[in-house]
Design a binder for these strands. Structure first.
Lengths: 305, 305
DNA sequence: GATGCTTACGATACCCGTAAAGATA
DNA sequence: TATCTTTACGGGTATCGTAAGCATC
C-alpha cells in the first residue's frame, strides 16, 4: 500500500470510475493507474470495485469502507504538507477560496488587497459555487477556505467563524413609484413596510444563495407571498433586470454602488429584514498553512461578533 | 513521503529515539532508518527531531504536530488491513488482548475457550498490565481489545461495552474469628458490617486495580480507615498472604474457588460493597477484524447490562 | 571502548511510461 | 469504430542492506 494507490482510489471516485481521466488528472499513465488498483486489490485480497467485464462501475461494500478511510488519510497527508509550509514560514503556495458571487464581488476585494500586500507570492484561487458546492469542496479538501451566508453552519466536519453581517435592501429603477412613496413616508416619519414591497414583482437570489432563506421566512412570517418573477445567482444580474423594469430587486445592500449604478436607487430595509451573518469555514482538524490562518484572521478581524 | 517513513517516525518515539532499536523492531537496517528520517525532513523542509550532534534527543515543535497526524494515519492504515481481513473472512491472525490479572485469570478462560473453538487458527496474545497501561496500549494500537474494571471508561478515543458485574468479598483463613462471628450473626438474622471488617488488617489490590477505588470510597463513606497492610496485583498473591495469617483479604469473589482454596473461607459481602462493572474497550473509529468483533460479542453476550 | 548515527555504494525491487492487445459501448 | 482497460516490456529510480567512517557517552 502506498500513497499513490490511495490518491488513485480517491480520484477514481471523483472521476466516476473513468481511469483514463484519473490518469490525466494525476499526471500519470492509464496503465499505471490500472496496475495500482489491481496491486492494491491483490494486496488486500478483495475486490474494491464492481466491474462489468473491464469497465469499472462502482464500489463494492468493502470498497466503500476503504474509500472513507482513504479520504481521511489523504486529508491527514495534506495536513502534514501544510504543517511543513506552516513552520518553514513559506510565503508562497496556493490558497483556494470557495465562495459565492456576492462575497467574491463585494466583500473579498478589500480582504484580498490586504492579503496580497502581506503575501505577494501566494496564488489565490477564487472558486465560485453554491453554498452546497462550497461545503462539498471543503469537505473533500479541494478548497482550503469557504465563505458563504447559507449552509456552512450545520455541516459536519467544518468549523466556522463569523465574517460579517449585512442586510438586504431593495433596488428600484430611478423614478419608480416606490421612490416617491418612501419620500412621502419619510416626511410623515414613517418607514417602508413589507407589504409595500410585496406589491411589486420581485427579482432576487436563487434559492440557497445569499440569505434567500431569510427572505422567504420574513415574508412568510408576515403572511405575504411575494411574486418572485426572476431569480439569479448574483446581484449584477439582478440589477440588470431591475434596470430593464422587470420588477424591483432585493439584494445585499453592499452590492449597490451609487456611483456606478446610476439608473438605480437603493431603499434601506434594515428594519424589515433580519441581519444575515456570512461565515467563513475550514475543515475541522485540518492544519492550515500560515497564510491561510492569516487570511481568515483578516476576514474575522473586521467582524464584531 | 511514504508509509515506511511514517512507521519509522512512530517507532522512533516508542523507542525513545534510539534508531538502532527502531531498525531492529521494524526488521530493517539502521542506515535505512536514518536515511528515511533525513529524507522526510528534507522533503518537508524542517527539522522534526532535536539533535545533539548525531544523537536524537526529542521532537521539535513541528515534530510533535507531525507525530499526532502520523499516529492517526497509521491507525487508519491498520484499519484498512483489518478491513481486508474482515471481508476476506480470514479466520487467522493475531488478536492482542490487554487486560488485568483478575480478568485474565478468572473471567477470560471461559471466553477464550469458546473463542478457540470458533477461531482455532487465531493466535491470542494476552497482555497483562495496569488499567492505565491497557488504555495506553489501546490508544497506540498495540492492543486490539482492552478489559479492565478501572480507568477505561473515561479515556478519550475509546469506546467501551459492559462485560460483567462482580462484587468484592472477604477471604479469611479457616477458623478465623470472623467465621464464627458471621455464623452467630446469621443465627440472629444479621449480616456482617463494614466495621467488623475494618477491625482487622487488610490485604487487597494495588491502587488503580480491580475496583480498589470502589473499596476506598465505601470505607471512606462509612467513616472508616482500614489498615491495609499489604497490597498486591492479583488475588492469588493476596490469598497466599491471607493463608499466612497476615490479615484478611478483600478480593473479587470470583477469584475464590472453594475446591482449591481449601484453607480459606469466603464471606459474602454483596450488601457491603457496590457492584463493580468490568468493561471491554476498543479504539474508537478503528475497524476491527471479524474475530475481534466476535471476541467482544462473546464477552458482552453474557452481560445483562 | 562501546554504543549509536551517518555516509558510501552496489544489488534489488518497484514504479512509471510506451506500446500492443483485448473488451465494451 | 472509438473509447477504455489490461497486459507486456524496458528504462529509470528509490529502497535496502552491508560496510566503513565518525560522533557521543
Amino acid at each position: 500500500m502506498n500513497f499513490q494507490q490511495l490518491r488513485i482510489i480517491r480520484e477514481t471516485l471523483r472521476c466516476q470510475f473513468n481511469l483514463t481521466e484519473v490518469a490525466s488528472r494525476l499526471y500519470t499513465s492509464q496503465s499505471g493507474v490500472s496496475k495500482h488498483i489491481k496491486d492494491l486489490e491483490d494486496e488486500l485480497g478483495l475486490a474494491l470495485f464492481e466491474r462489468k467485464g473491464k469497465r469499472l462501475l462502482g464500489l463494492t461494500a468493502p470498497g466503500r469502507e476503504l474509500a472513507k478511510i482513504v479520504e481521511r488519510m489523504l486529508l491527514d497527508a495534506q495536513s502534514i504538507k501544510n504543517l511543513a509550509e506552516q513552520y518553514s514560514q513559506q510565503d508562497q503556495g496556493t490558497l483556494t477560496v470557495a465562495t459565492t458571487h456576492t462575497q467574491a464581488r463585494y466583500m473579498l476585494p478589500a480582504v484580498v488587497a490586504q492579503f496580497r500586500l502581506r503575501y505577494p507570492k501566494v496564488k489565490l484561487h477564487l472558486h465560485q459555487g453554491s453554498p452546497q458546492e462550497i461545503a462539498q469542496m471543503l469537505s473533500s479538501g479541494e478548497a482550503d477556505i469557504g465563505i458563504a451566508t447559507e449552509a456552512l453552519g450545520d455541516v459536519e466536519g467544518l468549523i466556522t467563524y463569523p465574517f460579517h453581517r449585512w442586510h438586504h435592501a431593495v433596488v428600484i429603477p430611478a423614478g419608480h413609484a416606490l421612490e416617491k412613496q418612501v419620500t412621502k413616508l419619510a416626511k410623515a416619519g414613517k418607514q417602508l413596510a413589507l407589504k409595500d414591497i410585496a406589491a411589486y414583482p420581485i427579482i432576487t437570489y436563487h434559492e440557497g444563495f445569499t440569505g434567500r432563506a431569510v427572505l422567504e421566512k420574513t415574508f412568510q412570517a408576515a403572511g405575504l407571498t411575494p411574486e418572485i418573477v426572476l431569480s439569479a445567482l448574483d446581484a449584477d444580474v439582478i440589477k440588470s433586470y431591475v434596470e430593464l423594469g422587470l420588477g424591483i430587486g432585493i439584494v445585499a445592500s453592499l452590492a449597490f454602488n451609487p456611483e456606478r449604478d446610476l439608473g438605480l436607487r437603493l431603499l434601506d430595509c434594515t428594519h424589515l429584514f433580519p441581519a444575515n451573518l456570512t461565515r467563513i469555514a475550514v475543515r475541522e482538524g485540518q492544519l492550515q498553512r500560515q497564510f491561510a490562518d492569516d487570511f481568515i484572521a483578516l476576514c474575522t478581524s473586521s467582524c464584531k461578533d
